[in-house]
C-alpha cells in the first residue's frame, strides 16, 4: 500500500483521503483509528506529559482543586479545571454527571439506582461512579440527542 503525505496551505482544511478497491474491515479500522485521534487531552503522570485520546478516557474527576483523568487502568493529572473540560467536551460524547465528575458516555455499561438516593453508572473497567439526580435530566437529554 502506498502512503502519500501532501503539505497543504494554512488556509485549507486538513483532510485524510483513503484510496481503496473495497471498503472492508481493514479500511474501517484505519477510519476508527483516525477518528480516535481527532480529540486529544494532555495528562501528566510522574512529571511526564502524555497525549490521551478521547475515546480512551473513562471519566474526569475533580478532587480537592486537582483534576484527574481516568483511563481503563491509568490515571493522569491535569492542570485544567473540571468546568473547562465540561465546556470543551460538551460537543463530544461526554456529560457532567455530578459536581465532581464528567464521564465518557461511551464507556458506561449500565446505570442503576444507588442506595443513597442517587444513581450510579458502571464503567467498562467495572468501576462505579455516582450520578447526581440534578444532572439526570441533562444526561437524558444528551442521550436522546443521539450521535454528537
Amino acid at each position: 500500500m502506498e502512503i502519500s503525505i501532501k503539505k497543504i496551505g494554512e488556509e485549507e482544511k486538513e483532510y485524510i483521503e483513503i484510496g481503496c478497491h473495497i471498503r472492508d474491515e481493514r479500511v474501517d479500522e484505519i477510519v476508527r483509528f483516525i477518528r480516535s485521534r481527532e480529540g486529544i487531552l494532555k495528562g501528566i503522570k510522574e512529571d511526564r506529559q502524555y497525549s490521551l485520546a478521547l475515546p480512551d478516557i473513562l471519566y474526569i474527576e475533580a478532587v480537592d482543586e486537582k483534576t484527574f483523568i481516568y483511563l481503563e487502568n491509568d490515571c493522569y493529572e491535569s492542570g485544567r479545571r473540571l468546568y473547562e473540560f465540561e465546556e470543551v467536551l460538551s460537543s463530544r460524547n461526554f456529560a457532567r454527571i455530578s459536581k465532581s465528575v464528567v464521564v465518557n458516555l461511551m464507556k458506561i455499561t449500565s446505570i442503576k439506582p444507588s442506595l443513597n438516593g442517587r444513581f450510579s453508572c458502571v464503567l467498562t473497567n467495572g468501576e462505579q461512579v455516582i450520578i447526581s439526580r440534578k444532572y439526570v435530566p441533562d444526561i437524558r437529554e444528551k442521550l436522546r440527542g443521539g450521535a454528537v
Binding site: 474501517d28 477510519v31 476508527r32 477518528r35 460524547n93 458516555l105 461511551m106 458506561i108 449500565s110 446505570i111 442503576k112 439506582p113 438516593g117 444513581f119 439526570v136 444526561i139 437524558r140 444528551k142 442521550l143 436522546r144 440527542g145 443521539g146 450521535a147 454528537v148
Partner: peptide
C-alpha cells in the same frame, strides 16, 4: 429510580449504537 435507570439504560444503548454507527 429503578424504572428511571432502566429507561436510561435503553437510551444509553441507543446513543452508543448511534455514535458507533456514525463513526463507522
Amino acid at each position: 429510580d429503578l424504572k428511571t435507570a432502566n429507561i436510561m439504560n435503553e437510551e444509553l444503548m441507543k446513543f452508543q449504537k448511534n455514535v458507533s454507527k456514525a463513526e463507522n
